[in-house]
Design a protein around this nucleic acid. Structure first.
Length: 484
DNA sequence: ATGTCC
């Protein structure tokens, strides 16, 4: 096994030195508890050490505790590349650009929603389109979609689909700078224009969850985030930029493939195709990626609009009375320019987070005013059977992980393998027995996303908590799930 | 993740 060559830096940090394979410019670091380190796939080790070979990489190539095999980078991969001689790589961001999570609070408690569970589930399912190729209620013209690409969630504010409180509680206010619609293909636009406000498929879901008192690890911080009553109803939204971001990733992989010779980049894996950040092609992808990121923020905001409408109808009150407010909205798949100290001096790096969450601690100007004292919320999606976790960012992340932490439980099994292991119907029944009502347009998907196909979320969360890059705040238990 | 192969 390759693991005997790992150097244990601390109880939960394992380093793979540069002599592990030829061409590594920096060491690779895997964050993991002792119990999970042996479960790390050899392919993940291959992938993260290939990332360590990319031009302009600084400090380490990192893999979070929920890491598993992905396209090029592992999902759970984090890497920072020098603005001057570094690269940008679609494989380091993911096909689903700005796949991410939003958490909503409400004033409701479990007892209040119990009599209306089935109605709530059915109305949510009818209102929020889900599944492959689904389209939304909005009929947008190209001018509006250009605004969505370039203004992100601000478009929702202008159009009456968001409140200023929503905007304040989205990463980067739901508007990524440098977005330029001229870098986006017509094909991407035509795939995306009718998909705003839709959930998608795969591991995407919409979940109603309960904040039971025993799941609150830090009552003071939970209260700052708006979790302020026993058995409070929470809503989790997990989705991304749909076919729009997917097409942009596809388009630029093709562009990078064609220009790779010109820039003479050594790439150990075709899936890691890259372009220099400073190159014309690299800049164009960066700007197109920002458009997809903005569209994903809009998507989650429009889904929020739909959820508010449903809650309002089902409980016969307006949304203000129900207190349906955005706790926070985070990107899990994105690259951003951020400043870090490298060898004693500050450098601007393009931080790639692929299945990883920003984890900024207290005092950072980028985070909402009301969260300044505690750090940003970190929203971690579990499997549909186990529910999500809420953490807060910590300063330690700036030193260890380029201000990053984990994003989910992390798969242990491929979708195919999961489908061979169980049938959707048996998972539905098991969830029902556990008090979770689920609705989906694609039953085999329940097996694909079953808890047995994922690592234990509490275990991966404990690892990042122990390292100190983010801190446990709360764990929620699902009661309703719409699986795309 | 994805009009899961134009």
């Amino acid at each position: 096994m390759k693991k005997d060559r790992f150097k244990r830096i601390s109880p939960n940090i394992w380093e793979i030195p540069t002599d592990f394979k030829q061409g590594m410019r920096v060491p690779a670091r895997i964050l993991s508890s002792e119990e999970l380190i042996d479960g790390i796939d050899d392919k993940v080790i291959d992938q993260i050490t290939n990332v360590a070979c990319l031009s302009g990489i600084k400090k380490y190539a990192l893999c979070m505790p929920d890491g598993h095999c992905g396209y090029g980078f592992p999902i759970g991969g984090v890497a920072g590349f020098s603005k001057n001689d570094g690269i940008i790589s679609p494989g380091g961001i993911g096909f689903d650009i700005n796949c991410g999570m939003r958490l909503l609070r409400t004033d409701l408690t479990f007892d209040e929603i119990k009599p209306k569970m089935e109605l709530l589930l059915n109305k949510l399912f009818l209102t929020i389109p889900s599944g492959v190729g689904s389209s939304g209620f909005l009929k947008l013209n190209k001018g509006q979609f250009t605004d969505i690409m370039e203004k992100g969630a601000d478009w929702c504010l202008e159009s009456g689909y968001a409140t200023s409180n929503d905007i304040e509680h989205i990463e980067d206010h739901g508007r990524i700078s440098h977005a330029d619609h001229t870098t986006v293909s017509e094909k991407a636009i035509s795939r995306g224009i009718n998909q705003m406000g839709t959930l998608g498929s795969g591991n995407h879901y919409l979940e109603v969850e309960i904040a039971h008192p025993e799941g609150i690890y830090n009552r003071d911080i939970a209260k700052v985030f708006g979790i302020d009553r026993d058995n409070q109803v929470i809503v989790a939204i997990h989705c991304g930029s749909r076919g729009f971001g997917h097409q942009i990733a596809t388009d630029y992989l093709e562009v990078f493939d064609k220009c790779s010779k010109k820039y003479d980049l050594v790439v150990r894996d075709k899936e890691l195709m890259s372009a220099p950040i400073k190159s014309d092609e690299g800049q164009r992808y960066f700007r197109a990626m920002a458009c997809a990121a903005n569209a994903a923020f809009v998507n989650r905001q429009l889904i929020t609009f739909g959820i508010r409408k449903v809650f309002s109808e089902v409980f016969g009150k307006n949304v203000h009375e129900l207190g349906v407010e955005t706790i926070y909205d985070v990107a899990h798949n994105i690259a951003k320019m951020e400043k870090y100290e490298i060898g004693g001096r500050e450098e601007e790096l393009l931080i790639h987070r692929k299945g990883a969450t920003r984890s900024f601690g207290p005092g950072r100007p980028e985070i909402p005013k009301d969260y300044q004292l505690v750090g940003q919320p970190v929203i971690v999606g579990g499997s549909m059977e186990t529910g999500s976790a809420l953490l807060c960012g910590a300063k330690q992340a700036d030193e260890e992980t380029f201000g990053s932490t984990l994003h989910g439980a992390g798969r242990t099994m491929s979708r195919m393998q999961a489908k061979r292991t169980a049938r959707g119907e048996s998972i539905r029944q098991k969830m029902k027995d556990d008090g979770i009502m689920v609705k989906t347009g694609y039953m085999p998907g329940l097996a694909e996303e079953a808890a047995f196909a994922y690592k234990d979320i509490d275990s991966v969360v404990s690892a990042v908590h122990s390292i100190g890059i983010s801190k446990k705040v709360a764990r929620f238990k699902p009661v309703l799930n719409i699986k795309g």
